[in-house]
Design a protein around this nucleic acid. Structure first.
Lengths: 183, 183
DNA sequence: AAGATCATGTAAATCGTTACATGATTGT
DNA sequence: ACAATCATGTAACGATTTACATGATCTT
C-alpha cells in the first residue's frame, strides 16, 4: 500500500464496518455518516477497490440473490483486517486545514467591512443548515440502541459542538466588525 | 490565473497586506499568522511569485539597502489589487475537511477502546499546546493597537474557541468511552 | 571554523477533483 | 415511455507535498 493512502484506509475501514458492500453502497453510507469529516468520490472509490483486491486486502464475493442487480460486492480479508488495524493504532497525522473563509477574513482590511460581514452571514446560513442535518442524524442514532452507535455519536457530537461554537464566533465577529465600522 | 488557484490568492493577499516582501518573508509571516488555517510551502511560493509576476499582478522591486542580502522583493500592482479584490468579494467555497482523527474514531469499534482513548488524549496534548501558542499571539496582538488588528483577532478568536470546544469534546468522548467499556 | 538561518529554486511523486462515458433497472 | 437512480468505471487536469539541490551570510 502506498505511503499515505488515507483514502484507501477510509474505504477499507468502511468495508470492515459494513462487512460486505459494493462501491456504490460504500459511498452512500459515507454520505450518511462520515460526510462531514471525510468524503470520497466514486472516481476514487472504484480504483481503490481494485487496488485493495490486487493486494488481497479485500475479495469480491458472489452475491446474486433473487433478482439483485449486478454489482461488485466485497468483503475484507484477514490480511486486510490486520493492515487496517495497524493503521488504526497509529497516531493520526495532523489535520492540514485550509479555510478559505478565514483567509478572506484575514485579508478583510483590503475590502469594505460589509464584504466580510456578508461572508460571515452566508456562513451562518450554511452552519444553520448543517446543524439541522446533524440534529436529524442525532435523532436517528438515538432511536437505535445508542450503545451500538457510540462511535457515530462521538463524531457527531464533534460536529454539533463545532457548529455551535462557529455560530457564536460568527456573531461575535459580525458585532466586532459593525462596531469597528462606526469609528 | 488558473481556475481555483487558492494558493496564488493566498500569496497575493499576503503581499497586499505586507506592501513589499520576499518569498522568504512571506512564508515567515504566514507562519506567524495564518499558519493554523492556511499554510504554504517554499516550493509553492516561489513558482507562484514567478507566475504572478508574469501575469503582471506583482512586480519585483529593487531594494538593496545598506548591505542587505540579495533577495527578490515584490509588491502588488494595481492589476493585482483588482484581481485580488474580485476574489475577496466572491463567496468562499466550502471547506473540504479531512479529519483523520475522526475517521479513526469512527472506526473505533474495530479496535480496543483504549486505542481510541489514547488518540483522544494525544489530541488533547496537541490542543493544549496550540492553545498556549494562540494565547501568546493574543497577548502580542492586544499589545499593539487592537483596532489595527481586528481581522487578526477575529481569525484568532476562531482558533481559540474551536480549540476550547475541542478540548471539551475530547473530555466528553473519553468519558463516554470509559463508561461504555465497563459494560 | 562551524552551525544556524537566510534565500531561492527544481523535479518527481502523489493525490484529488471534474468531466466524460455507458448501460441497466426501477418506479410512475 | 420517461425520469430517476443504480452501478461502474476512465481520462485529464490541477494542485500539493516531499525530496533534492545550492550557496550566501550571520552568529558564536
Amino acid at each position: 500500500m502506498a505511503k499515505s493512502a488515507k483514502s484507501q484506509f477510509a474505504v477499507l475501514g468502511m468495508l470492515a464496518l459494513l462487512k460486505r458492500s459494493s462501491g456504490y453502497d460504500l459511498k452512500k453510507h459515507m454520505e450518511a455518516s462520515t460526510q462531514y469529516f471525510w468524503r470520497e468520490t466514486f472516481s476514487s472509490i472504484y480504483p481503490i477497490l481494485e487496488d485493495l483486491e490486487t493486494q488481497k486486502l479485500i475479495v469480491k464475493i458472489d452475491v446474486r440473490a433473487k433478482n439483485d442487480r449486478k454489482r461488485n460486492v466485497y468483503r475484507i480479508t484477514p490480511q486486510g483486517t490486520s493492515v487496517l488495524t495497524a493503521w488504526l493504532l497509529k497516531n493520526p497525522d495532523d489535520i492540514q486545514v485550509r479555510n478559505e473563509l478565514l483567509l478572506k477574513l484575514f485579508f478583510g482590511e483590503l475590502v469594505p467591512t460589509k464584504v466580510s460581514i456578508k461572508h460571515l452571514e452566508d456562513y451562518k446560513k450554511e452552519l444553520t443548515h448543517k446543524l439541522s442535518v446533524f440534529r436529524d442524524i442525532e435523532t436517528n442514532l438515538r432511536a437505535i440502541d445508542s450503545s451500538e452507535a457510540v462511535y457515530s455519536l462521538i463524531t457527531l457530537d464533534h460536529g454539533i459542538s463545532q457548529v455551535l461554537t462557529s455560530l457564536e464566533w460568527c456573531d461575535r465577529a459580525i458585532k466586532t466588525l459593525k462596531s469597528s465600522k462606526e469609528k
